[in-house]
């Protein structure tokens, strides 16, 4: 029996009757809400399947905003084991979870990198925004559809040693518009000018997976691919894309054995799934120098090199800068 508040039997009956009516109303409302949700998804999937398939990841991107919760948790746990200042690490954890991309930490790439959702690395936000030119601001004539492997030419080397004033690092060489889902922050299909530097193919082979959205081969879902996969024989030499410094060498369950090389002008390249890394962290490397060997470590279905190019943390389509299938 519920509380009666001393009004006698009749009053108590009334209150319980009212309560029941209220409960029923609430349950009816919940039922209607569930029905509406169900119908939205059901009809949506039937009528505009593509649109619905696209909203999922978009919604998720808004919710997550490039936060790698797993990495944040792992880092917190690691701090605990290393007996660092846990309070400071908790503050850092809050920054990472609530406001990703606000802190610049290119050097601290966690070992627990996950597919396409690694620690967001953002440079100066204003600069990045300026570089990350949007389609809408470009004239119609400049827009081209991305056709894989139809990059006509490499950026021509400048005749003068110093770059011409009209083309600076980060300027758009060729704007690219791609139908379908918009890329997350810090990804760009555009061909941006990386500055005047001599470059080499990281490895010769067949491109097996392009930059951008694709069905991921091992996790089996539609996910963004942060670089290109170049299939080659295991043990084949992986060469440095340009002169630079080996920033980080590591190994994890996703990318296997990997390394980062930092080049001039804020350009970074990433090489993963290697069978062996021959370069050491901190080592100076020359363009074309062997730094690793092709392998199939980490989440991989066969020997290949996963190669990424970034300009100030923005992941670019490497196919603008390399031609692994020629020669």
């Amino acid at each position: 029996m519920r509380v009666t508040y001393g009004r006698g039997h009749k009053a108590a009956k009334n209150t319980s009757g009212e309560k029941r009516a209220r409960d029923q109303r609430r349950q009816l409302l919940q039922l209607v809400l569930c029905l509406v949700l169900f119908l939205t998804v059901f009809i949506g999937k039937g009528v505009f399947p593509e649109k619905i398939a696209r909203t999922g990841p978009q919604l998720l991107a808004v919710i997550r905003a490039n936060t790698d919760f797993r990495a944040a948790f792992a880092q917190l746990g690691r701090a605990l084991s290393e007996q660092e200042s846990v309070l400071g690490e908790l503050g850092q954890f809050c920054v990472e979870v609530f406001a990703p991309g606000q802190d610049e930490r290119l050097s601290a790439v966690p070992a627990s990198v996950l597919w396409g959702e690694r620690l967001s690395v953002s440079g100066d936000p204003e600069n990045a925004a300026a570089r990350y030119l949007r389609m809408e601001q470009l004239p119609e004539s400049l827009r081209v559809d991305l056709k894989p492997q139809t990059v006509q030419a490499e950026p021509e080397p400048e005749p003068e040693p110093e770059p011409e004033p009209e083309r600076k690092v980060g300027d758009v060489v060729q704007a690219v518009s791609v139908q379908g889902e918009e890329l997350p922050e810090n990804y760009s299909y555009e061909w941006l000018w990386l500055g005047d530097m001599e470059t080499a193919e990281p490895v010769k082979g067949t491109v097996t997976s392009q930059f951008g959205y694709r069905d991921h081969p091992t996790i089996g879902r539609y996910a963004v691919h942060a670089g290109v996969d170049i299939g080659a024989d295991a043990g084949e030499a992986v060469c440095a894309f340009a002169d630079g410094t080996v920033k980080d060498v590591g190994e994890d369950s996703d990318f296997g054995k990997y390394l980062y090389i930092e080049h001039a002008n804020g350009v970074t390249t990433f090489y993963s799934h290697c069978s062996r890394i021959s370069a050491k962290a901190g080592e100076q490397v020359q363009v074309g120098q062997k730094v690793a060997e092709v392998g199939s470590t980490g989440k991989s279905t066969g020997p290949h090199l996963h190669f990424e190019v970034r300009l100030d943390g923005v992941r670019l389509d490497p196919m603008h800068y390399i031609r692994p299938e020629e020669g």
């Binding site: 797993r70 948790f73 746990g77 084991s81 908790l90 954890f93 994890d252």
Partner: peptide
């Protein structure tokens, strides 16, 4: 205990 999962679990518990 360590390990990737261990660290994630530790961080989660701490948080």
């Amino acid at each position: 205990l360590g390990g990737e999962r261990g660290f994630v679990f530790a961080g989660m518990n701490l948080a």
